[in-house]
Nucleic acid binder design. Structure first.
Lengths: 112, 112
DNA sequence: TATAGTACTTCCCTAAAGGAAAGTGATAAA
DNA sequence: TTTATCACTTTCCTTTAGGGAAGTACTATA
């Protein structure tokens, strides 16, 4: 009989996960928020990411209005990626994950 | 030339993502922390989860010492899942995701 | 003219995640 | 004796994520 309803928490958490899930989205947002603007700079700032994955995730993040793709019509054309204001709302999540990740690494080191 | 290093943030965030990634781990932790202890109760508290996925994720979470599997040798045998103290350290992450998810849903409603 | 940089795309492939449905072995209740 | 509950497992299948390597179209520089 009876399970306790945790839907009030589970539902919004899943909404958030749906947007930022995967191995790369948060790292890319962090990189862009740090000030990396060019495709190659972002790529080089995130170890292990391939151009294919980066291109795909950048499109995703643009659709969610977390970053902006800016074309500058010089010769040669420049393309810049900048964070949208909405990206700032992710800061508490990033901070929480960063804090937890740091302590988790400590914990694992101390065990072994 | 020169990209800005964001590794100080990217690395721990990726460590955290590696542990709690996927669609189901956080919902399961939330359910267990809410007080659901039995397999079927947890299953019923999370819409859409199948027993196969739940069984697999519970094993994962046990390995990471986030939950405990307790066998109670009555007749019939009972199995209980309880949160480990380490699960509490995830609360800031869950809260941040919950807060963001709620506002995100609002934002999307107001747009359309 | 050859080489390098920029911002990608294309192809091909594997692994992991995840869904659907049914089954299992134990006990228990009607 | 049939039905139900509990905690799963098994099988099969599809989807998604992601890695590797190469290519491309343009421009710039030596």
């Amino acid at each position: 009989m009876g399970y306790l309803s945790c839907l009030d928490t589970v539902k919004p958490v899943r909404d958030a996960i749906d947007v930022i899930s995967g191995k790369w989205k948060l790292p890319i947002i962090i990189s862009v928020m740090t000030g990396n603007e060019r495709f190659t700079d972002i790529q080089e700032s995130i170890p292990g990411i391939t151009p294919k994955v980066l291109a795909k995730e950048l499109k995703d993040l643009e659709q969610h209005q977390l970053i902006k793709r800016i074309v500058i019509d010089d010769y040669p054309v420049k393309i810049l990626y900048k964070p949208e204001p909405y990206a700032d709302t992710l800061t508490p999540i990033i901070d929480a994950l960063k804090g937890w990740g740091l302590k988790h690494r400590e914990r694992i080191f101390n065990k072994e």
